[in-house]
Write a protein that binds this DNA or RNA. Sequence first.
DNA 1: AGTCACCTGATT
DNA 2: AATCAGGTGACT
Length: 266
Amino acid sequence: MPELPEVEAICRRIAPLVARRTIRAVHVVRALVVRPQRPARIARIAEGRKILDVRRRGKNILIDLSGGFAFRIHLRMTGELRVDRPVRPSTRFWLELSGSHTLVFDDARALGRVHIYSSADLEKIMAGIGPEPLSKDFSLDSFIEAAHDSRQPAKLFLMDQRRIAGMGNIYAAEALFRAAINPRQPMNRIDPQRLMVLHAAIRETLRTAVKSARIAYNHPGKVTEAERFTRAVYGRAGEPCLRCGTEICRIEQGGRSTYYCPNCQR
DNA sequence: AGTCACCTGATT
DNA sequence: AATCAGGTGACT
């Protein structure tokens, strides 16, 4: 379930475990996940370098290496990163680190990607995605301005990575519920007053979800409890709205599910 | 702007 | 057997 909050939790979790370690060997189990890059080239570049930091940008996990290189890992739908021994059928890629640690990338569907770039190239790629919604870069003014220029339905706008970094299907739906906006509403037809509410709702939704995701990672048994707390509409088609009791609807937008309350979100 | 392919496992 | 899945990018 990797959107911004889950990716943030993963980065925070693994950073202290892998930082300052040296990459002894790179193992590309499935060349598909590094395509179009070549396993041999990735290994040649990465081996012997030290891991300096693990960061998040949108839904990307960035692993800075010594000498001006970095890995970019995108989990897509089903990817997972863990620091552990690599003994799973779904393991696609792993790094052997100094101190006999391993950083393992598992991905059942193999849609996730691992690439290596020079730091300069990586920055160029990351410059193409929108502001971090939990940082000051995500200003109300620029949000309103961008909304004014777009006829996109609100939910698709929120999920557009060039607009806002890291929002996905779940939290876009949750933020719209919180702001009481219909997911089909074109962005340029939402008045500034309500855009202000939406801007705040995006930040609150993600902040809450980051907390839940971090708890979920540290206490696996509490996952369901944490999720219930962060999901007012997502996946609840046919169930009563927590605010008004009306049945939650499921519609399709851009080929995927959108959940909303037809009474609260008009 | 909208649709589909990319993959595979879980669910119906 | 068919359908569904939280993301993204390539295509029309």
